[in-house]
Design a protein around this nucleic acid. Sequence first.
DNA 1: ACCTAAATTTAGGCAAGCCTAAAAATGGGC
DNA 2: GCCCATTTTTAGGCTTGCCTAAATTTAGGT
Lengths: 226, 226
Amino acid sequence: MGSEAIDNCLKAIYQLAGDDERATTAGLAEQLAISPASVTGMLKKLSEADPPWIEYQKHHGARLTDRGRARALEIIRHHRLIELFLHRVLDYSWDEVHVEAEKLEHAISETFEDRIAHVLGDPEFDPHGHPIPRRDGTLPDRADSDLIDMEPGTDAEVSRVSDHDPTMLQHLSSIGVRPGVRIHLLERRPFDGPLMLRVGDEQAVHAFGARLAGSIRIRDIRSAAT
Amino acid sequence: MGSEAIDNCLKAIYQLAGDDERATTAGLAEQLAISPASVTGMLKKLSEADPPWIEYQKHHGARLTDRGRARALEIIRHHRLIELFLHRVLDYSWDEVHVEAEKLEHAISETFEDRIAHVLGDPEFDPHGHPIPRRDGTLPDRADSDLIDMEPGTDAEVSRVSDHDPTMLQHLSSIGVRPGVRIHLLERRPFDGPLMLRVGDEQAVHAFGARLAGSIRIRDIRSAAT
DNA sequence: ACCTAAATTTAGGCAAGCCTAAAAATGGGC
DNA sequence: GCCCATTTTTAGGCTTGCCTAAATTTAGGT
Ligand SMILES: [Mn+2]
Ligand SMILES: [Mn+2]
Ligand SMILES: [Mn+2]
Ligand SMILES: [Mn+2]
């Protein structure tokens, strides 16, 4: 089926544009860390495959076909199952899992996928709180929103954090921020200033700048929480 | 460092020629399932690497350098650790592990290698009885010999079986032959005929033809066995 | 509507790994 | 010691996936 380059491209389109929006050449070039010219070539190939992986119009970006989306979700399922497996079974820290999963996602068989899913009890979320696509291509849903938009004076639960920067994950870990942990937003400092918040039951107040806050999503505290 | 093609070539040289013999172009072509012409190109490249992976003289085959042997053993360590991990942790049957390991051996990091070795208790042998190279490049040693050369009327223990043919492994499994199991050789039928033997405590007598017998190695029964 | 900056595509090239067909070297039998 | 069958290498070619530089298209501001 698809090569590693193809799989990474489909995954990137899904991550940039989702189910039915179009991803731009420039966006894909940045995401994949290759030149825009190389992206154009790849998009042409993907759209001329039989059956096609994407719908592509020159100068207007690429949109996944059903087949393309299925493949993207398949790779993302691999990635997230592997991340959780590394964390739970092989004792990787959550900042180590992404890089290893990035390679392994292309190397495992469907059998391997099924076995780790079984060992993990058919999990729905990875160590960073990202939903793990099911075999049928559906996604576990968890209504969440950006930390940036949180109402000062309220509480919320960390839903997910971006997994791309290991140093950021280490920092979040060191102050106790991980999916499921409760936070309390004290205030938002003016002129797009930092968010001042407390984590869990700790007294310490942390200042989250835009970069850090932008990589976190939250959800309403589960209602019946005493 | 090495690409997947390079790693497979070094591994093949090690398997065909061992530490300090030379592997032939034709042998490697067969082992790697590529054309002899492609092997020649690869050997030239490997011998011109800096530092070189192999010593190569036209028309006289290839011999591993220290670096080449170290790399080959590294890949074989990956392969055998992965096989055991799949069997023990992910419940693969022993005829399924080889194919999956063949891909994964190239995809895992040193961290992954260390973690599965630790989870498995730093094992010395894989599910087929093959020795797992240590990180320092030494090999667990187990004095064994070919089943073909076994003395009729004696007992021995299965040491290892070839892992390349899944159907053969299934058959061996079905009659109870696996590393550690005791066998008793009744007789060798004339004119290179089959070996007639009993497995474990079973009464059944099995006839092993040359192909099957040739894929099994045995060792003397551990002396103090009641 | 036009003009320009940015985005995108085209053109040409390169390395890795494979192939087949043809040429050349080897070495075993006599 | 020579010859010929076998092995190996050389020559030339193909695909994938990337690159840079140049040409082109698009879209935004006026
Ligand atoms: Mn990840
Ligand atoms: Mn990837
Ligand atoms: Mn391999
Ligand atoms: Mn094995």
